[in-house]
Design a protein around this nucleic acid. Structure first.
Length: 372
DNA sequence: AAATCGTGGTT
DNA sequence: TAACCAAGATT
C-alpha cells in the first residue's frame, strides 16, 4: 500500500472534481440535496443497479412525495411499491426510519453520519452518503465502488469482504475526502467506479485519475481489490401448491421473518417435510403425502393432480430453489380458518406484493392453463 | 464474524 | 452454465 502527501491529495481532489463537474451522471435523485430524496435513492441503490432503480424511484416519489407520507403509508402499499426490487427488509426499515424521524425527532433529520446511523436500515455507507451529500459533513461514503477504486489507486491489499477492512478504509479515506465538497467527492468516486474503474471492464488508460492509479501504473490492476469468494447457492427442493377455486387461487402471506417476508405466494412445502412424511408412511405416493400434509397443516381437503406437474427454478444470492408445482381444484370455497392466507382473484392479485419467484410460478401455471 | 436477505445483468 | 457483480444492513 502506498501513501499520499497533502499536495498529492489536493491534486487528486481537484482532478476528480473537475472531471465530475464535466461528466457527472444526471440522475433523478441528483436534482437537489433534499435528505428525503437522497435517502430513498441510497436505500434503493443498495446492491442494485442504477438502471433498475430509476423507474422505482420515480414511482415511489409520486406515491410518497414526503417523509410524512411514507411514515403514514399502509404496509401493503409500501411493499407494492417495492415489489420486484428485492431485499424487502429495506422497505420495512424505510418506514421504521420515517416514523423515527417524523414522530421521535419531530420531523428533523439527524445531520451527521453518527446520528443518521441510529435510523433503521441506515448503516455506515448510507449514513456517510446522506451526511456528506445533504448536510456537507466531511466523511467518506464507502460502498463497493469506493472499496474498489481506492484499493486500486493505493494498492490496498486488505480483503474487502471482511467487515474489519471497512475501518482501515475509513482511516485512509477520511483525510482524502474533499473538505469543501464532500458530497460531490463521494458521488464522483461512485461515477468513477461505475465507468473508468468498473469491476469487470475498467478503462484505466483513459481515466481522469490514471496518474493516481498505482495498480494501473504497476500493471497489477487485475489483482485489486482483494476479495474472498462467497459460497455458491445451496440447492433447496420444494413443492409448490396451486389450489384453485373457480378462477381464484389460494395464496399465503409469507411469515414476517426470513425469505420474502410478508409477501404473497403459493404455499411451499419443503422437501424435508415430504421426506419425513414418507419415512413414516412408506406406502404413500408423493401426491398422497402432499394431500395429507395440506390436510394436516391447513385443514384443507384437496386432491393434487399427478399428471399436471411443472418445474420452476429460481436462484437467490445464497439459495437455489427447485420447485415442483402441483395443481388441485376445489369445487367450492373452503374453510380457511387454519390457512395463513386467502383466496385471491385475478383482480385482487394486482394489489398484493408478489416476489419474482412467484411470478415465475404463475407463468408456469398459466402455460398449463392455456394448453388445456 | 459469518450468514442472511432478491433481483437483473454480464461474461 | 455457473460465477460474479451492483450506491449494504442486520443479526
Amino acid at each position: 500500500m502506498i501513501n499520499w502527501s497533502k499536495n498529492r491529495i489536493a491534486a487528486f481532489q481537484d482532478t476528480l472534481l473537475a472531471w465530475y463537474d464535466q461528466e457527472k451522471r444526471h440522475l433523478p435523485w441528483r436534482q437537489d440535496h433534499d435528505p428525503y430524496h437522497v435517502w430513498i435513492s441510497e436505500i434503493m441503490l443498495q446492491q442494485t443497479q442504477v438502471k433498475t432503480v430509476i423507474p422505482y424511484y420515480e414511482r415511489f416519489m409520486k406515491r410518497f412525495p414526503t417523509i410524512e407520507a411514507l411514515a403514514n403509508a399502509a404496509e401493503n402499499d409500501l411493499m407494492k411499491m417495492w415489489e420486484g426490487l428485492g431485499y424487502y427488509s429495506r422497505a420495512r426499515n424505510l418506514q421504521k426510519a420515517a416514523k423515527q424521524v417524523v414522530f421521535d425527532y419531530e420531523g428533523k433529520w439527524p445531520n451527521t453520519a453518527v446520528g443518521l446511523q441510529k435510523l433503521a436500515g441506515i448503516g455506515p455507507y448510507t449514513a456517510g452518503a446522506i451526511a456528506s451529500i445533504s448536510f456537507g459533513e466531511v466523511v467518506p461514503a464507502i460502498d463497493g465502488n469506493a472499496f474498489r477504486v481506492f484499493a486500486r489507486l493505493l494498492e490496498i491489499d486488505a480483503d474487502i469482504a471482511k467487515p474489519q477492512t471497512r475501518h482501515l478504509f475509513e482511516e485512509i479515506l477520511q483525510p482524502i475526502v474533499s473538505p469543501t465538497r464532500p458530497g460531490d467527492f463521494n458521488q464522483a468516486i461512485m461515477d468513477l467506479g461505475s465507468s473508468y474503474m468498473s469491476a469487470a471492464n475498467p478503462d484505466s488508460a483513459h481515466s481522469p485519475v490514471r496518474a493516481f492509479n498505482q495498480a494501473y501504473l504497476d500493471g497489477v490492476e487485475e489483482s485489486y481489490p482483494v476479495k474472498t469468494k462467497k459460497p455458491r447457492p445451496v440447492l433447496k427442493r420444494k413443492f409448490g401448491l396451486v389450489i384453485e377455486v373457480a378462477t381464484s387461487v389460494l395464496l399465503t402471506k409469507r411469515p414476517s421473518k426470513g425469505m420474502l417476508a410478508d409477501l404473497w405466494a403459493f404455499p411451499l412445502i419443503s422437501e424435508e417435510t415430504v421426506t419425513e412424511f414418507l419415512e413414516k408412511q412408506p406406502k404413500l405416493t408423493i401426491v398422497e403425502a402432499l394431500n395429507q400434509i395440506v390436510a394436516d397443516e391447513y385443514g384443507l381437503k384437496v386432491q393434487f393432480d399427478d399428471a399436471d406437474v411443472k418445474d420452476v427454478t429460481h436462484t437467490f444470492t445464497h439459495q437455489k430453489w427447485q420447485i415442483k408445482l402441483y395443481r388441485a381444484e376445489l369445487q367450492k370455497a373452503p374453510d380457511l380458518s387454519n390457512f395463513p392466507g386467502k383466496l385471491v382473484s385475478q383482480t385482487d392479485l394486482n394489489d398484493l406484493p408478489i416476489p419474482k419467484v412467484q411470478v415465475k410460478l404463475f407463468a408456469a401455471f398459466d402455460k398449463e392453463r392455456v394448453n388445456r
